[in-house]
Design a protein around this nucleic acid. Structure first.
Lengths: 235, 235
DNA sequence: CGAGGGTTTGAAGTGCATCAAATAGTGTGG
DNA sequence: CCACACTATTTGATGCACTTCAAACCCTCG
C-alpha cells in the first residue's frame, strides 16, 4: 500500500512523493467516525490503508445519497482542489479503518508542474466519470435484484469460470444504500435473485456454480459487455 | 460561438486553435441524425454551434439511458481520448443542429504539451463529475414532480426575482427521458407540479410569479443550496 | 384536409417504500 | 461460558409512485 503504486499517482515526481511522505499523517478510526463534512474547508486528501469509507451527501430533511463506498488503495477528497477547496461530500468510516492524510497543496502543485502526472490523473477522472455514468444507467434500467447481481459481479474475480464464492465487504444495510434501495428491499431482492439464478446465500457469503448465472440475469439490462472489471470502484 | 471563448478551452495555445481551425469541418444535420455510435472508433470530437444533441446508451433489449442532452456551446465526444479512442456513448441530433468536428489528436497533443490547458480541462471534468453526482442524487431522492421542478430551475435565469417564463427547449418526451421517466409520467407529474406550486403551463411554455414556488418544492429534496447555476449541463 | 407524431388521459399492474414486528446475530459484562 | 442488550436482518401488511398498455386528443405540416 504505497502511494507510488497507485495507478492514479503513476508518473508522480520523486519530489512529490517526498513531500507527501513528510507531511502525511496516519490515524486509525472506528466505525462511525466522520472524517469531514460536505462543504467543509478542505486542506487534505486521504488514502485508505485498510477498512471502508462511505462518501455521501444529505438533504435538510435527512435523506441521504451515497456517492461511493471505498476500500483500501483508494483516495478521496482530492477533487476539492477543483471545488474552491471545499469537500463535495461527507466522509464517514463504516468499517474500522486506517487512513492517511496528505496536503492538497502538494497535489495541486504536482498537477501544475508535472504534465505526465496531470494527464494520468485526467485518465483517472475519466475512468471515474464512466463509472458514475454506468451507475446512473443502472439506476435507470436495472431493477433491484439485477442491481444486486451486478454489484456481486463487480466484487468477484470476473475471469473465474468455475464455482465462485463472494463475501459482502460490509453491512447489507450499507450495500442497500450503495445501490439506492431500502434494507427491506435489499433483503427481498436478494431472495428473488436467489430464486431466479440459483445462487446460495449464507449470511454475508454468496456462492454459485458459475458467474454465468448472474451475468445472464443482470447484464441483460446493461449497455456494457461482460466482463466489466474496469468499472470497479475507483476514487 | 468561438472555440477560444469556451471556458473548457481557456488557456489553449494559438497553435492549438490554428490546428483546430484548419482541420475543422462544419455540417448541418436534421432531427434524428446519428453522429456516432457507442463504441465506435473515435477520430473527432464535436462542438455544437446550434441545435440540440442527445448522448445515450442502449442495451440489447432496446432500453435506453440518456447520458445528457446538450445545446450550443457544448462539446462532446472528447472523453474518447481516455477510452482507447472509442466513444463512450451514442450521439443523435434531436433538434436541427449545426455541428463542428475537430480531430481528437489535436486535443490530446495540447493536453500533453500545455499545462495550463490540462489543468483547466481537469477543472471542467471535475465540474462535470459534480454535475453527474447531483444527477444521481436527484434520481435517488427526488420524485418525478420534484425532478421536473429542478430541471425547470436549471433552465431559468436563477437571479431573476420577479415573474418568470420558461420555454422547454425540446420535446416533452425527450425531457422525460432526460429525467429518467416515461412520457406519461412526465405529463402527469407536470400536472401535479402545477397543482402544488401554482405555475402556469401552455404547451411548452411555463410561467410563474416567482421562482420561489419551485425552489421550495424541489430544492427541499437536494443537498445543494439554491441557486445552483454551476450545475447547468456542461460537457 | 388528412397523416403522423407528440401529448394527454384512463385503467390496471408492478415494484419499491413504509411501518410494524419478529428473528437472528454480535459483543458485553458478569 | 451464559444471559442481556443492542443492532442487523428478515418478514408481513399496506400504500404510493411509476410503468405499461390502450385509446383519445391535439397540433403541425405537407
Amino acid at each position: 500500500m504505497n502511494l507510488k503504486n497507485l495507478s492514479i499517482f503513476a508518473n508522480g515526481s520523486d519530489r512529490f512523493f517526498e513531500t507527501l511522505d513528510k507531511e502525511s499523517q496516519t490515524s486509525k478510526h472506528s466505525k462511525g467516525k466522520m472524517l469531514f463534512l460536505h462543504e467543509d474547508d478542505a486542506q487534505s486528501f486521504f488514502l485508505i490503508k485498510s477498512g471502508w469509507v462511505k462518501l455521501f451527501r444529505e438533504t435538510l430533511d435527512g435523506s441521504q445519497s451515497v456517492v461511493d463506498i471505498l476500500s483500501a488503495g483508494h483516495i478521496f477528497g482530492e477533487t476539492a482542489i477543483f471545488e474552491n477547496d471545499r469537500y463535495p461530500y461527507s466522509a464517514e468510516v463504516v468499517e474500522p479503518a486506517e487512513i492517511v492524510s496528505f496536503p492538497l497543496s502538494a497535489l495541486k502543485g504536482e498537477i501544475r508542474e508535472n504534465n505526465d502526472f496531470a494527464f494520468n490523473m485526467m485518465s483517472a477522472m475519466a475512468r471515474y466519470r464512466r463509472h458514475q455514468d454506468r451507475e446512473l444507467e443502472h439506476r435507470t434500467i436495472q431493477n433491484a435484484p439485477q442491481r444486486i447481481g451486478c454489484f456481486l459481479l463487480r466484487l468477484a474475480d470476473q475471469e473465474q469460470t468455475g464455482p465462485v464464492t463472494i463475501h459482502l465487504p460490509y453491512d447489507k444495510t450499507l450495500v442497500a444504500s450503495r445501490l439506492g434501495m431500502q434494507p427491506e428491499t435489499f433483503s427481498r431482492a436478494l431472495s428473488k435473485l436467489k430464486a431466479q439464478t440459483g445462487i446460495k446465500i449464507k449470511g454475508a457469503t454468496i456462492e454459485m456454480d458459475s458467474l454465468n448465472q448472474l451475468v445472464e440475469y443482470s447484464c441483460a439490462a446493461c449497455s456494457s459487455e461482460f466482463p466489466c472489471k474496469d468499472l470497479k470502484a475507483q476514487a
